[in-house]
Design a protein around this nucleic acid. Structure first.
Lengths: 176, 176
DNA sequence: AGTATCGACGTTATAGTATAACAGCTCGGC
DNA sequence: GCCGAGCTGTTATACTATAACGTCGATACT
């Protein structure tokens, strides 16, 4: 019986496990509690290779937490967003993990400077971090006397893989 | 009985009326039909000084179109977005008008290069058009082999008016 | 130990946003 | 007149999110 927290870790792969441990340390530093449910939800998000919707998470969470209901998962998601451990992709109403380096840059600042590239075909979403984009937006805002708080910068289109795939399909139809 | 279309125009103010006529010409040029319902929904959006939700529009639409249901308004909204006559503000799940100059710049291009400043307090939302922001985002996308289609660039914060209001309230509490 | 408090969670109900599916109608071209 | 395409009517339902209230357990202070 070497601690239930450690048992939870075993439910995810090694890679995810490392990230979860890192997240736990982040929460410790913030004086907040990464409970079993929160840790589990974070694990589910991290284990996915694309953004996950709240009700998808709920279905998966129920496999281990029978009593889980929508508020269960939304509360966990709210917490994880506050900790900067996940982000919401607005266009998809779905969530992606964002576990930084331990000594990673200031999250409070980082949090509203993130950008996403969202593939319309495969839904895979990558986070990019080009401060100049958010900076340009904030500069424009300042010219309107606008005080910024949170930005949503998302670009929907085709990822490199799906472009290549589409090209291949095109070639097949018109081999000349 | 001088045409029902003209009668519809009378339901909105002069300013909105002009924009509606302009929108009608845009649709003509595109070979698409600005029907009564679509025109009415566009008028309601244009008449509001802040973004309007679909079900708000539905309530208002029902005052003249008794049988209107959610699909009625969503269809109109889809059409108007395709025509570039309105935009959706993702953070609010609400819609704002965007009727350009008659000889306005290319809409297909414009459409995915728009940015919004959204006030958390009063909800008023202004559209800004800083090509450099969208350009920077697309340049970053290109470096990932990503082919862009539509961007969502929204900044939530406090508009100049609400900042001033907040300052005044602050002064009142601490007059020193 | 007693107890006040606070944060997390359980549970039920409901609000808010959006679309599926199919039927009927109208308008313009033939 | 008839056909086809596009627009609308209608019903039902899916999906996303939160309100409201009760319980429980850990913590800290007495």
């Amino acid at each position: 019986m070497a601690g239930t927290g450690a048992m939870m870790g075993a439910m995810f792969g090694a890679e995810t496990g490392k990230l979860l441990d890192r997240a736990a340390r982040t929460c410790d530093r913030n004086g907040s509690r990464l409970t079993d449910i929160r840790r589990h939800v974070l694990g589910l998000v991290l284990d996915s290779d694309r953004p996950v919707g709240a009700y998808d998470l709920l279905d998966r969470l129920r496999q281990s937490h029978k009593g889980a209901a929508p508020p269960t998962v939304y509360r966990a998601l709210d917490f994880l967003q506050e900790q900067g451990l996940i982000h919401k992709v607005e266009r998809l109403s779905a969530f992606v993990g964002c576990v930084q380096d331990d000594r990673g840059h200031d999250h409070a600042h980082h949090d509203h400077k993130v950008q996403f590239l969202i593939c319309s075909v495969c839904q895979r979403t990558v986070e990019i971090d080009e401060p100049r984009i958010a900076d340009a937006l904030e500069a424009a805002a300042a010219r309107h006397g606008f005080v910024p708080r949170r930005s949503t910068i998302e670009l929907e289109g085709l990822c490199a893989d799906c472009v290549a795939e589409a090209d291949r399909a095109e070639q097949a139809r018109e081999p000349g």
